[in-house]
Amino acid sequence: MAVISHWLNNKSYPGTRVDTAPVTNPATGAVTGQVALAGVEDARAVIDAAAAAFPAWRDTSLAKRTQVIFKFRELLNARKGELAEIITAEH
């Protein structure tokens, strides 16, 4: 059964804890996978990574940041059906 891991520094990150929780599809009630549970160390690693990434984002021009956000919005809108399936399957 698939384990959904954390995401850190643009890649999959398994975390420091070994325990997981079931992921249930609310439409069917079936357990479709497991999600890795996070610990304090994992939260700290993600917070530290976000803090390290912030200066580069802050120094990016407003025009470029706006372009990135609007492109993200376009991708979400274009793939909303697929995203709805993923959210249903993972929650």
Rank of each mutant, 00 (worst) to 15 (best):
I86K: 05
A52Y: 05
R65T: 13
R73G: 15
G15A: 08
V3Q: 02
P26G: 05
I87C: 01
A84D: 05
A36G: 04
A78E: 12
R73T: 14
K71Y: 08
I47M: 07
A50W: 14
K11T: 11
V46M: 09
N25R: 00
A21V: 15
Q34L: 14
W7S: 03
G81Y: 04
V31R: 02
L75Q: 10
A43G: 11
G39S: 13
A36W: 08
K80D: 02
V23L: 12
I47S: 05
A53Y: 07
N10E: 11
T16W: 00
L8C: 04
P22Q: 09
A36Q: 14
A49L: 03
G33V: 15
A89Y: 13
V68T: 10
I47L: 07
A49V: 08
L76K: 01
A50Y: 14
V18E: 13
K71W: 11
L83R: 02
P26L: 04
I69N: 05
A89Q: 13
V23Q: 04
W57N: 02
N10W: 07
V23G: 00
T24E: 08
K64G: 00
N25E: 00
E74L: 06
L62F: 10
H91K: 04
D59P: 06
A53K: 04
A27V: 14
T60N: 03
D48N: 12
R44E: 05
P26I: 11
R17C: 09
P26Q: 01
L62T: 13
A89C: 10
R65C: 13
K11G: 01
Q67W: 12
Y13G: 03
P22G: 06
P22S: 05
N77C: 12
K11I: 03
S61C: 11
R17H: 06
V3M: 04
N10L: 06
G39A: 15
L75P: 01
A78F: 11
D59F: 07
I4C: 08
A63R: 15
R58W: 06
S5V: 04
A30R: 02
L37C: 09
T24H: 06
A53I: 13
A27W: 06
T28E: 02
V40M: 01
A43F: 10
V46S: 01
N25D: 04
I87Q: 09
M1I: 15
Y13N: 03
G33Y: 13
L62V: 15
W7G: 02
G39C: 12
D19H: 04
A50E: 09
A89N: 15
T16F: 04
R65K: 12
A52R: 14
E82V: 10
M1C: 14
K71D: 14
Y13K: 03
S61K: 14
G29W: 02
G15D: 07
E74W: 01
A27L: 10
T24G: 04
L62E: 09
L37V: 08
R79L: 03
I4R: 08
V68R: 06
A51L: 10
V3C: 07
T24D: 03
T66W: 05
G29I: 04
T88M: 00
P55D: 13
I69S: 06
T32Q: 01
N10G: 01
R58C: 02
H6Q: 13
W7E: 01
R44D: 11
A50Q: 14
N25Q: 00
A56L: 08
A84K: 08
I47Y: 02
P55N: 15
Q34I: 12
A43W: 02
A63Q: 14
A50D: 12
R58Y: 09
L62G: 07
D48Y: 11
E85P: 00
